[in-house]
Each structure stands twice: as C-alpha cells, then as structure tokens.
Amino acid sequence: MKSIKIKYFSSLRDAAKKDQEILSIDSPKKASQIFDELNERYHFHLDKTYVKVAINETYRDWDTLLDGGETLVFIPPVAGG
C-alpha cells in the first residue's frame, strides 16, 4: 500500500470537513478517479469542469497517474486579487 496526501481548500474543505488526509492506494490511479471517489464520499458541490488539479504544487492534467508519495490538491476556482 502506498499513500497520497490530499489537501483541501475553500468549498472542498468545507464539504470534506477536514484540511487534509492520507489516502491509501494499492495501484496507480488517475487524479480524476481519485476526485470521483472523494466526490462520492463528500459530495462536493463543484463539478469537475470547474476544478483544476495540482500535484506536488504544480498544475497537472486530470489524466495524470499518481502512484504514491505525492501531494494532491483539487483547486476550486481561485479568487485572488
């Protein structure tokens, strides 16, 4: 078993009711699969179309495979400025 650190922000943090968690995986998974699984658990109100993916502090595609050791963050629409 390998693990991925998930961090939550903004409305996703409110839905998950936590800042972060460790997710165990037994085989590589796409970021999109992980989002779908977490969405089923926490019922994020945001559609995936409006969310971006960051892996190890860098924007990546939804198809990026994670195989453990990464920090994964789903980025809701940002609102700086």
Binding site: F9, S10, S11, D14, L46, T49, Y50, K52, A54, Y59, V73, I75, P76, P77, V78, A79, G80, G81
Partner: peptide
Amino acid sequence: EVKNRVPLWKKEFYEDESEAWVECLGCK
C-alpha cells in the same frame, strides 16, 4: 494571471450574517 492561477480563495461575509466562497466559474 494572479487572479487566474494563484491558489487563493476568498470568502465574503455579508451584512445579513451569511457567508460564501467567491467562485468565479467564468474563469474556467
């Protein structure tokens, strides 16, 4: 670009005591 990419989120607190995350869905 800061408004478009930098991961910062803004929660507004209103006079009627409600609050909401500002999520500009148009950016996407």
